[in-house]
Each structure stands twice: as structure tokens, then as C-alpha cells.
């Protein structure tokens, strides 16, 4: 078994069999994380390059640990967004890295579609670690992985995605991945933060958070991307929290055993209240663990089976 394409760019373009393959591989690999010596020799001699044009702690660390646990070498390049346009082009940077012998590029970039572009530039595989407002496929996969650990199925589950869907690559990957696997997905947030024609993706859209949370098995709270708010899309963080944040009161609309998720980093007291974030219903730290396992699986499947 091997993945269909050279790259991992989006969950929209990934078929359900490949999603299943990554998830089942991740399930096997998760065991390594609980070992006293977290290292298998599988990717010895491979070089994983993380190329981050946007700041990130979690995702980059997660990819780097995943690579190290499988004995790959890692190189990490972080470039401030502001210098990109003036400096070397992405194509030139990436071609240089390629001839130095890297085997895969894991890229984060502020422009949607940048990973698609990079995949055209390079012969080596590209893994999208988040591109603009487009997708963050490994986040989508780790979210599905985490839900499966708690609910042991996706089909028929009611998942409510709350908040800044417009700017969220996480929301898009989750919507594509979860609907592909048969979940009933709804989104809710202020209309200024819901992208047009979102319902055509097979989700229900609400302006009242309570309507989406009603009867939900999973509540996914998106990070309010304050850095992307170029226009006046909502009046204040206070008002946002009062009407659209997930607090204990709104959580009551969900099923008794509903789990609460968040991709991090959280704006406590804005999109999620601290008592909910730290409650037993929160599986936010499990998501982080799943992330390493899913990225090990992604690296193994991308790097392991090619001549």
C-alpha cells in the first residue's frame, strides 16, 4: 500500500482510502511515543526540511519530533513573512534545498496555494503544514484521529465547528476530511467570519452557536485569527466571546459525552473560556499527541515506499 500522490497538499484532494491508510499507520506508530527510547530506524538517512514562512511552534515541533523519532535528519528554515517578497523567490529557495539533498519539504506559508506551487517546482514531495486560508491537512488528519480515539467512528457523528471559519485552514481541512468520512458537520460564527457558499461543501451554517452545538458529539473551537483581521469583521473580543465563544453555558447544548477540541494556540476568554478549555471534556492535549503520530505516519508513507 502506498499513497496515491507525490505530495500531501489538501484533504479535499485526498481520497478516503489514503486518509484511512494514514490513520491506521498512525495508530500503529503511536506506540513508539510511549517507549522509554523513542526511536525507530525507519527513516535513517532521510532528510526532512521544515520550511516555515509563518511563525509556528506546535506544528513545526510536531513534524520535527515525528521525523526524529523515525531517525530522519531535520533541517529547519524559518523566514519572516515580511522579507519574502523582497528576497529570494520561493522557487529559488526550494530548488537550492532540493539540490542539497533533502527528501521532503514540510512547508507553512501565508499564501493559499503556495504548497501547490511548491509541488510543481520540486521533484521531492511536499507536505502542506498550513497554507494561508486554504488547508492544513495533517491537522485535519490528527483531528479525525483524535475523534476516532474517543468515538471510535466518524460516520453519523455530529461535529460543530465554531468561530473564524473564513480565515481558517484548519476548518477547511476538517470540513473536507470529516464530511468525506460521513460526519454531519455544522459551522457557526458571525456571518462576517463565514465564507460564502460554505453550505455547498456539505455543512450546515448557523449564526447562533447554540444551534450548531445542539446535540453535538464533537465541538471544534477555531482559533480567532486576530492577526488576519484586516477589516472590521467583529466589534471587539469581548462581544465576540459573549455571542460566539464556547463557555460552560453553551456547552450544555451538546451531548453529555461531547468532546471539545481546539487546534491551538488558544485565545482563552475569547473563543473558548478557560473552564471549558481545562475541563475533562477537553481533548486538546490528546490532539497534540495524535499530531506526532499522524505526522510520523505521513512522513513514513511519503518517504518509505519510493525508489
Amino acid at each position: 500500500m502506498a499513497l496515491k500522490g507525490k505530495d500531501i497538499l489538501s484533504l479535499r484532494e485526498m481520497n478516503p482510502e489514503d486518509i484511512e491508510l494514514i490513520l491506521s499507520t498512525a495508530r500503529s506508530l503511536k506506540e513508539i511515543l510511549s517507549r522509554p527510547i523513542k526511536k525507530v530506524p525507519t527513516l535513517r538517512g532521510k532528510v526532512v526540511c521544515t520550511l516555515f514562512y509563518e511563525p509556528s511552534t506546535r506544528t513545526r515541533t510536531s513534524f520535527e519530533l515525528a521525523a526524529k523519532y523515525m531517525s530522519a535528519d531535520t533541517v529547519s528554515i524559518a523566514t519572516a513573512t515580511s522579507s519574502v517578497k523582497k528576497g529570494e523567490t520561493l522557487a529559488d529557495t526550494a530548488r537550492n534545498l532540493e539540490v542539497m539533498g533533502i527528501d521532503v519539504v514540510v512547508m507553512r506559508h501565508s499564501v493559499s496555494g503556495a504548497c501547490h506551487f511548491l509541488a510543481k517546482v520540486l521533484d521531492v514531495p511536499v507536505i502542506n503544514a498550513g497554507d494561508g486560508m486554504h488547508e492544513h491537512p495533517t491537522q485535519g488528519l490528527l483531528d479525525i484521529f483524535t475523534i476516532l480515539e474517543y468515538k471510535s467512528k466518524i460516520r453519523g457523528l455530529k461535529v460543530a465547528i465554531l468561530g473564524d471559519v473564513l480565515h481558517s485552514r484548519v476548518a477547511r481541512s476538517d470540513i473536507f476530511g470529516l464530511t468525506k468520512m460521513g460526519a454531519e458537520v455544522s459551522v457557526a460564527g458571525p456571518n462576517t467570519l463565514l465564507p460564502p457558499e460554505i453550505e455547498a461543501l456539505g455543512v450546515k451554517a448557523y449564526n447562533r452557536v447554540e444551534d450548531a452545538v445542539e446535540g453535538a458529539d464533537v465541538i471544534y473551537v477555531l482559533r480567532l485569527q486576530l492577526e488576519r483581521q484586516t477589516k472590521s469583521l467583529f466589534p471587539s473580543k469581548r462581544e465576540y466571546h459573549d455571542f460566539f465563544g464556547l463557555d460552560r453555558k453553551r456547552l450544555r447544548y451538546a451531548k453529555e459525552d461531547a468532546i471539545v477540541m481546539h487546534p491551538g494556540p488558544m485565545n482563552r476568554g475569547v473563543e473558548i473560556s478557560t473552564d471549558v478549555a481545562d475541563s475533562p471534556r477537553s481533548v486538546i492535549l490528546d490532539q497534540v499527541v495524535s499530531g506526532v503520530a499522524v505526522r510520523m505516519a505521513a512522513l513514513y508513507l511519503i518517504l518509505g515506499g519510493r525508489e
Partner: peptide, 15 residues
């Protein structure tokens, strides 16, 4: 994960 022929295989073994 410990095989010595991983990168030579097109049909990747399932973990």
C-alpha cells in the same frame, strides 16, 4: 519499521 529494504519497495508494507 526495522526492515532493510523499505526504500526499495514500491508497494510499501503496511505498518
Amino acid at each position: 519499521l526495522y526492515r532493510d529494504d523499505l526504500t526499495m519497495r514500491f508497494d510499501q508494507p503496511h505498518v
